[in-house]
């Protein structure tokens, strides 16, 4: 769906839908004029954000929905993902220590770090009835 250079996709909260989300995001980012490397960054960041929502906000409840919006604002892309599950508190997040995680056989927590590395700006918003992660990528 498109309204004024905005594209929207709603998927249910299942990891089965991740491939479709990635394809959607990559197609739109290409349409907006991003290069291959930038498209890879955006696609991975959205995958990580969507995975975190499925896993943490909804705890794999597949009856819930995730809404993904892409919009080109001046010279940057704004991607937002909206959910109505448990809010993520970015203050509780710390940079993962991979060496330490290997030792303790932990595997989570790196998605948030990757998102910050891949995108130019990231913000987490908590509204009354929904949560939103907004990520920006500059179009060079």
């Amino acid at each position: 769906m498109t309204i004024n250079n905005t594209y929207k996709l709603v998927v249910n909260a299942s990891t089965r839908r991740l491939a479709e989300v990635r394809q959607f995001v990559a197609d739109k980012a290409m349409h907006f004029g991003f290069d291959e490397n930038q498209i890879s960054d955006i696609r991975l960041a959205v995958d990580e954000a969507c995975t975190n929502i499925i896993k943490h906000a909804y705890k794999y409840d597949e009856s819930q929905n995730v809404e993904i919006r892409l919009k080109l604002e001046k010279n940057k892309l704004c991607v937002s993902l909206t959910d109505t599950g448990n809010a993520f508190d970015p203050n509780k997040y710390s940079k993962p220590d991979i060496r330490e995680q290997m030792k303790s056989k932990k595997r989570g927590g790196v998605g948030v770090y990757l998102i910050r590395k891949l995108m130019d700006d990231v913000e987490y918003l908590k509204m009354d009835d929904h949560n939103m992660i907004r990520m920006y990528k500059n179009l060079n």
């Binding site: 991740l18 990635r22 696609r43 991975l44 995958d47 990580e48 995975t51 991979i98 995680q101 290997m102 030792k103 056989k105 932990k106 595997r107 989570g108 790196v110 998605g111 990757l114």
Partner: peptide, 17 residues
């Protein structure tokens, strides 16, 4: 062709063993 952190997590979880 593609890897996300969930894939990396598998390597992280088993390397010590």
């Amino acid at each position: 062709e593609y890897i996300a952190s969930a894939g990396l997590g598998v390597f992280m979880a088993y390397i010590e063993d």
